[in-house]
Design a protein around this nucleic acid. Structure first.
Lengths: 352, 352
DNA sequence: TGCGTCGATGTTGACGTAAACATAGCCCCG
DNA sequence: CGGGGCTATGTTTACGTCAACATCGACGCA
């Protein structure tokens, strides 16, 4: 063997540590730490020398060591059930942006499946992840059904419409939004409003349905049978086909924009004109809704604000220990071209 | 002061460490470590005793300490420019799911703005984040324009259509998809195909446009002027309005489904029927496309596969040091109701 | 019976950082 | 002009884990 030192070819260049900087700058490690953390009084000349040394060796603080020492990780965990829902994604983006500007990074903890078992497993693994707090973006009642023990010493906020969690809740004002939608249609002169609801396990779907019903009852209107969808446009289409067959339907409130899209398609395929023959209102105001055929009247959810509020509440709890109250974010009605007064009675829908 | 010990009310319950478990089980910390890592020979009786002790004190390994010791963080960074693009979100979900099953968590590094400066800042801060590797989900040419120095010692893969990065690239086969779309319309009998392109800074938009043009030229078809959008449905609507005014348009290939949605709306508002009068093809196959009015013929991108492949390549590089080749994921044509043969000539579009 | 071997477990130290405490020089004021 | 306090910096140590090495006892074979 010509060369006894087999390791030579690739010198493992360990990233520079505080000690390297200290040696180069001729100061103690502690002074480097003080400069790095921009705290306490450091002589300007010393600081400059340290900064120069940092630059020279390419010093980057080691997060792991910092976390070990301080007990804080500078990271917030986000538990998501799915990224496919439009609103969740928007909220996540707001949370991520807000976290970055508050000095935290985001650790995504996806749930492989939404079964109670998977939920329990994810929560159990939670404390292994190095996070200072957790945002749970809920989709359904999973927190109750599963025998979940959440870490008690970790700040947690929940994005959902249930009132049942032992944590601060941030949510869109579902009831107000559904009232806005229903009342808008009643105000246009419709006798009543049909409803395509979300899945039974969703609290927000339940809240919207309850509020729709309460609004009809308050107006003395007949409360029609509820059609149940699963948030998907396909399920909205199925509901739309049923609604298209009935001639006592003049107004439909779909519990989200995707299902409203399905309803619009069903109506179109049945030769029903929107808004001349029937009106449709959605919920969410997703980006595409303004370009549906016709552009959809809908309830605007401020997902960004929900995400920002959640992050603020969580960071506040992390840094001060105070827990927050429930935070409710209002919605707005966005009028577009899918709603109009009902056709002249007797109300047989014209079929061209 | 009645009570000298002011700290009593809230005993700060520090999470249990290996030392606590060791004390309770009457073994050394090292033995606890061996049990926790499921390595080496440990006497079954001892192991049981340690496991019982772990359960009793609720022991969870401390990731920070582990990372500090091992130099590995068990986390993968994902740099995203925006969560609002449909495909990026789908890929992110696939990456997150795959990472979880490979034993990594995901650290999201959002970019506040997509300016070269923000990009450079994010990359500079990258090595502070405790990650073993990075996936960059690109939107545009930012990696070139900005004077970006990426950490050289960190495995990186890029999701984009450029061939210019010094890292492995994972991408949908943009050229094949655009060819599929264009050829489908030509095969239906259209003389040529108009194109609504994505923004100039997007490499995937460029690739789709080039391939559309090449396909037309190969077929000996006239190459019409390109309409430029920005991926949004609104920009598709604007393009659609222009296309609606011309009577030499029978087929349109929009570079994504959102712009196709805008084109559909513009055509509907101009009294143009799809697919009877004109055909429209999109690109992406987003969830909603099947419920557009009419359901959209489009190119299916397998975003999940792109995400999974990216993750596999990255994990492979992290764990073995081998870098990957460029990975290209093919697309499929999904025929729905927005395409048909052109109306009988002479081709003046009928307006009912 | 004695020695080598191997399996189970313990001891030590280091990873990079920062809190707590220590020291040394300086200035201000009585 | 002497002591108290204040500022800038250094020294020590602990955070939780795990690799490397050390130890100790049991068993097998000559």
């Amino acid at each position: 063997m010509p060369n006894g030192d087999a390791k030579a070819p690739r010198p493992v260049r360990r990233p520079a540590s505080m000690a390297d900087v200290a040696r180069l700058a001729g100061v103690s490690g502690q002074t480097v730490s003080r400069v790095a953390n921009e705290v306490e009084n450091v002589d300007p000349a010393t600081r400059a020398r340290v900064l120069a040394a940092m630059r020279e060796v390419g010093y980057r603080p080691n997060r792991a060591a910092r976390a070990l020492r301080s007990g804080r990780f500078g990271s917030i965990g986000v538990i998501m059930f799915s990224l496919s829902s439009y609103g969740n994604t928007r909220s996540l983006e707001a949370i991520a942006t807000g976290a970055a500007s508050a000095g935290y990074s985001i650790t995504l903890i996806p749930l492989a499946s939404a079964s109670p078992m998977a939920v329990a497993a994810a929560f159990a693994r939670l404390s292994e992840h190095a996070v200072d707090g957790v945002v749970i973006i809920m989709e359904a009642h999973y927190l109750h059904d599963s025998q979940v023990e959440l870490p008690t010493d970790l700040p947690i906020v929940v994005l959902d419409s249930s009132g049942q969690y032992p944590y601060p809740i941030i949510d869109t004002d579902q009831a107000q939004g559904a009232r806005l939608a229903t009342q808008h249609l009643l105000d246009l002169g419709h006798d009543t409003v049909w409803h395509v609801s979300g899945p039974a396990v969703s609290f927000s779907a339940t809240r919207r349905r309850d509020s729709w019903r309460a609004t009809l009852e308050a107006a003395g209107a007949r409360v029609p049978e509820v059609l149940r969808g699963d948030w998907s446009a396909n399920s909205g289409y199925d509901a739309g086909c049923i609604l298209a067959e009935r001639d006592d339907v003049t107004a439909v409130f779909a519990s989200n924009d995707e299902m409203a899209l399905g309803v619009l398609r069903a109506f179109r395929e049945h030769g029903i004109r929107v808004p001349e023959d029937r009106s449709v209102v959605g919920f969410d105001d997703m980006r595409e809704s303004a370009n549906f055929s016709p552009p959809l009247t809908t309830i605007h959810q401020n997902f960004e604000r929900v995400g920002i509020r959640a992050l603020e509440a969580l960071v506040h709890e992390i840094e001060t220990g105070d827990t927050s109250e429930r935070i409710i974010v209002p919605t707005q009605l966005v009028q577009r071209a899918s709603t109009a007064p009902p056709p002249a009675r007797p109300g047989r829908v014209a079929r061209p």
